[in-house]
Nucleic acid binder design. Structure first.
Lengths: 203, 203
DNA sequence: ATGATTTAGGACTGATTGGTCCATAAATAG
DNA sequence: CTATTTATGGACCAATCAGTCCTAAATCAT
């Protein structure tokens, strides 16, 4: 590519903006107008660079997933213990929720969970993207759970895979509770129960 | 109302059809055309009887919630034990999921959970309807949990309210997992873990 | 029968949807 | 300075959206 007028925007920057937009308002409720505005792009640039709304959305899913996995890996590496890492993550999840004092507004939740709920049943290509995304996230949690267990504490009744599924289920459930408006103080005991269950022998 | 041309359709029947439609495809993705077709109504009849799409949706939420609570109460009354009732319910939730043999298609999930995920953040009136709906459902689960515990088995570390929140969180999470395409055999251990946690002292 | 009253059907509306197309601008290669 | 290539802006498009309105049909009261 030696010819032609140079692109006036940064692709990653635009992708980041699009991801934020889709993350905030979902797929259907995000109009092209919304995207153009938040990405600061002209319509032709968007279509030329990203194909169409659907393709852009899938790229955003990949971008989000990669960013999230990288972030989680860093947090896991820097955490005092992997149990603390898991607890902190759960606490982050419910920290979006209504506080008794302040009702801060927007709860974006997790882009992957949101998309699973909005689109997975009626769009197979998006369902695939969500599946690979959650699988990659699950890998991090799997390591955290494995590392968190001391050898003598392994409970053979439950495989690590089952515990990972349990954790992801709990996270997804918490996300929904937060969106439904449940207060943080109600969800705190829930994450205690989840942590207790993850490390069964260590009560 | 003694005058006038008689209504040619049954209101409850139309409401039932609308509920099924909204339940299947959500609020935004359900067009008025879809509604008219599944309700077998003319546009004027719908607007005259139900006001508009938004009002109709809220009526559907109420209808669904009432139906669900009634159904749960009957099941709880007829079940061998309330623990069995809870287990059966969780098993119902994941029975919608992909079976290893057959990939049966549509997973409607729970109308209230779906709506919480789709609309609760940007529509306060719908958020209220969801809140009262889940509160009513929670009451049934609360009774089930209380009845399921024999007096000597009460664990004072967790209030019944916390256990109810935990249960609803788990149910919501399972709904998302099912929608995301997780296989049933992966979710079975998860509900075992949830049941174990609900009845902590009885392992 | 006739007038009152309500329902039903469907034409119509303005706004918005995602997407296309074309003329113009901006850069490089020769 | 010209030809080539790509990017941009915006006019334009058909389809669809929720919602309105008017006419015709159907029933009841008199």
């Amino acid at each position: 590519m030696t010819y032609g007028r140079p692109r006036e925007f940064d692709i990653d920057c635009a992708l980041e903006a699009a991801t934020q937009q889709f993350w905030s308002t979902g797929y259907e409720a995000t109009s092209l107008q919304d995207l153009l505005q938040s990405m600061s792009l002209s319509k032709s640039s968007l279509y030329q660079t990203f194909g169409n709304k659907h393709e852009l959305f899938i790229r955003c899913l990949g971008y989000y997933q990669q960013t999230m996995v990288d972030e989680l890996n860093i947090k896991l590496a820097n955490s005092i213990s992997s149990r603390q890492f898991l607890y902190d993550f759960l606490d982050d999840v419910i920290s979006e929720s209504k506080n008794s004092s302040s009702n801060n507004g927007i709860k974006k939740g997790c882009f992957l969970v949101n998309t699973a709920n909005e689109l997975c049943q009626r769009d197979t290509s998006i369902a695939e993207a969500v599946a690979t995304g959650t699988a990659n996230v699950a890998k991090v949690f799997r390591r955290a759970i494995e590392q968190g267990k001391k050898p003598q504490e392994i409970d053979t009744r439950w495989t690590t895979d089952s515990l990972v599924d349990y954790l992801i289920t709990s996270i997804s459930g918490l996300r929904t509770m937060v969106k439904a408006g449940t207060e943080k103080k109600s969800l705190k005991p829930v994450i205690d129960l989840v942590m207790m269950t993850l490390f069964i022998n260590e009560r």
